[in-house]
């Protein structure tokens, strides 16, 4: 095997995450699928860092983790504030805004 296998695995994980975002209804699970996508990006970055021989990829991955943490805080706060009102985290229920 070559490090390319990691890249292919990361691409597959990215796609699984993207499909999850489109398919799942629970807002928190949708957000977890986004987190999976970010993780696959991290794996891609670390693998490319090794292939290219520079550490920039690892540092970018580090920043991605920090940004993901901040995003999780804000996102879960938004989801919680909606849940407290609606008693449901289903995104199908978020249907007041329409065509």
């Amino acid at each position: 095997m070559t490090p390319t296998y990691y890249l292919v695995l990361a691409a597959i994980l990215f796609t699984i995450g993207a499909v999850g975002v489109l398919v799942r209804r629970n807002a928190i699970v949708v957000f977890m699928c986004v987190e999976l996508m970010l993780n696959s990006v991290n794996l891609t970055l670390v693998t490319f860092s090794r292939i290219n021989g520079t550490l920039d990829g690892q540092i970018i991955a580090f920043f991605v983790m920090v940004v993901a943490a901040a995003e999780v805080v804000v996102g879960l706060a938004i989801i919680m504030s909606i849940f407290r009102t609606r008693r449901s985290a289903s995104i199908d229920d978020a249907n007041l805004l329409k065509y």
Binding site: R25, N26, M80, F83, S90
Partner: peptide, 12 residues
Amino acid sequence: VLMLVGRESSDS
């Protein structure tokens, strides 16, 4: 957060 809010909603 799942324990607090999202646990019971299984996707329809």
